[in-house]
């Protein structure tokens, strides 16, 4: 298929969205839009690993991939630019999932903001060490001032010799690359710049390996996220040190954060709305967002326990996240706000 890997990823997302979200939702997911809707969607539909992992994607690329899936009879439109997989599409996706590379280590939810800076530091450190060891002069592969400063300070603060540092970092990278597939290890190594070779772009690697560029991009990111996760687990590693000072994102929109602060001070919703000069429905959106993202946040003050249980039961029975269907089934004494809140809190219930 023409749009190979992009189409594969799109079909995976559309399958998870189950016809309940439009193509725009996929776009917002990949580009990492920090809106309440997108943040919730990625939780509800278990697509959090893909949040913000393809920041420069354009909507027309997604449309092109959708068109290609449609032309091949793999998806059909349902409504409002939403699509579901056809039977053929589901079979095809299953096959692909078994045959094609899937980024299992991807954790966009956690790393979408950090990955670039982590990579900048790592790749500049590798370039610098490689050139120091070979006594060659070089032009830094990144012009990003903070990264340059960070690497410079890091090297100056070392008690280890350049040789030891290089050997240790080599050991860490080797171990982690040995864990992933040969192809992923190849992609990652080719991206690195050394004294002898300037790193390749994803596109160059793709053409060398005769692979889809998007696939190479995700293979690279998959390794990168794997390294970051391993780094977080091993506090004595150089890779862990490379994460130093890179802050993990708070998964709330700015506006929701403010509402959260008021809630923590015990203000009721109506008053927060008045204080912030926002509509009550907006504040409700924030509460839903907070419920979806902050595990310790209790929804008990907003929904009666029995009602919550009823909502969960109904959603399970109907196998849907469509608010209207759930409300129709339960009856008028439950509000949309209550349903959304419960669904948000229960996040991954399937």
């Amino acid at each position: 298929m023409k749009d190979g890997y992009a189409a594969f990823l799109l079909s995976f997302c559309l399958h998870r969205f189950n016809g309940e979200r439009s193509l725009a939702a996929v776009y917002h997911l990949f580009s990492g839009k920090k809106s309440a809707q997108t943040l919730q969607d990625s939780k509800w539909f278990q697509l959090a690993p893909f949040f913000g992992v393809w920041k420069d994607i354009t909507f027309s690329e997604i449309e092109a991939a959708a068109q290609s899936l449609f032309e091949n009879g793999l998806i059909v439109p349902v409504q409002n630019r939403a699509y579901i997989l056809t039977e053929k599409g589901k079979r095809w996706l299953d096959e692909q999932l078994q045959r094609t590379f899937f980024p299992t280590h991807l954790n966009g939810w956690r790393y979408h903001d950090l990955e670039k800076w982590f990579w900048y530091r790592l790749s500049l450190l590798v370039q610098t060490l490689s050139n120091l060891l070979h006594h060659t002069s070089f032009e830094p592969i990144h012009r990003h001032e903070k990264t340059l400063m960070w690497v410079k300070r890091y090297l100056l603060s070392q008690r280890r010799t350049v040789r030891t540092l290089a050997e240790t970092l080599y050991g860490e990278l080797y171990r982690l690359l040995d864990d992933v597939s040969e192809e992923e290890a190849t992609v990652f190594t080719l991206r690195l710049t050394s004294y002898a070779r300037i790193g390749w772009t994803n596109e160059q690697i793709a053409s060398y390996l005769q692979k889809d560029r998007v696939c190479v991009q995700f293979q690279f990111q998959n390794v990168l996220h794997y390294m970051m996760a391993s780094a977080e687990a091993d506090r004595s590693s150089i890779l862990y040190e490379l994460m130093h000072g890179l802050s993990l994102p708070i998964p709330l929109t700015l506006s929701a954060q403010k509402t959260y602060e008021w809630l923590l001070r015990g203000k009721p919703l109506g008053e927060i709305a008045r204080l912030r000069r926002l509509k009550r429905s907006t504040i409700e959106d924030h509460v839903v967002e907070i419920a979806a993202n902050i595990p310790q946040f209790s929804i008990a003050p907003f929904v009666h326990e029995k009602k919550a249980a009823k909502i969960i039961e109904t959603a399970r029975k109907l196998k849907t996240r469509k608010l209207k269907r759930i409300r129709d089934a339960i009856g008028d004494d439950v509000s949309y706000f209550e349903i959304r809140l419960v669904l948000a809190k229960e996040g991954e219930m399937w």
Binding site: L177, E182, L190, S194, Y208
Partner: peptide, 16 residues
């Protein structure tokens, strides 16, 4: 000719 002899060799070449 691209002298790429696999990631293991390449990684070693970077650091040693």
């Amino acid at each position: 000719p691209t002298r790429f002899l696999g990631w293991r060799v390449e990684l070693q070449r970077i650091f040693f």
